[in-house]
């Protein structure tokens, strides 16, 4: 019986180890997001204001569980002395219906949009919001940067890294530090 219990404990630990690993990967992605915000400036003519009085508005599309990961990551709910407002959008729209005005407003008011566990339709909807967006658009969905997104977080072998679509960033009303552009894996949009 003791053997069974020990096996059970070992199994539980191994399952937990895998779970911890994916949790830690998500924590690294949140840390990357914090760095990207740190290295981004929003243009003065952008709808989204980049001043100390404004909170950071981060919209997570497609994964409510990740909203929780982000919310607990920042001590006191603040980053760079500014409060963080998290917007949880599990889906952008119902099947066959256009994206509603309220959702559009939420998206356009965001400093950061993070697309996760979602689909190509949501991605296209976000791209179609503006040809010169005010937000930093991140995702960890494979192929997102090549499909017109700005920064794609990815796991490459044993490390979490990111791909950068410099053209998409330059089209936006934001200025991302050349450091981010240089450290990321450059990709270009599909024609």
């Amino acid at each position: 019986m003791l053997m069974v219990v020990m096996l059970w404990l070992i199994l539980a630990q191994q399952v937990q180890a895998q779970d911890n690993q994916s949790k830690q990967i998500d924590q690294i992605k949140v840390a990357y997001m914090a760095n990207f915000i740190r290295f981004t400036q929003w243009d003065k003519d952008a709808n989204v204001k980049d001043n100390q009085a404004q909170p950071w508005i981060i919209t997570i599309v497609g994964d409510s569980a990740f909203v929780k990961d982000v919310s607990v990551a920042f001590p006191n709910g603040k980053f760079l002395d500014r409060p963080i407002v998290l917007v949880d959008l599990p889906a952008l729209r119902d099947e066959d219906n256009p994206i509603d005005e309220q959702t559009q407003k939420k998206l356009l008011a965001s400093h950061v949009i993070y697309l996760r566990n979602s689909n190509l339709r949501d991605h296209r909807d976000i791209l179609s919001l503006s040809s010169s967006p005010d937000f930093l658009y991140l995702s960890d969905m494979p192929g997102m940067a090549k499909a017109g997104g700005m920064i794609e977080l990815c796991t490459l072998k044993t490390r979490v890294t990111f791909k950068v679509n410099a053209k998409a960033i330059r089209n936006a009303k934001i200025r991302v530090s050349s450091k981010v552009l240089r450290l990321g894996i450059p990709v270009t949009s599909n024609p």
């Binding site: 830690q24 690294i28 949140v30 990357y32 607990v72 920042f74 796991t155 490390r159």
Partner: peptide, 21 residues
Amino acid sequence: EQHENAFLNLSIEELGQLDVT
């Protein structure tokens, strides 16, 4: 663990050096 993110203070370069192995 959920109440803290140990990686939040790391730089981009340091994050890129983390091995998920």
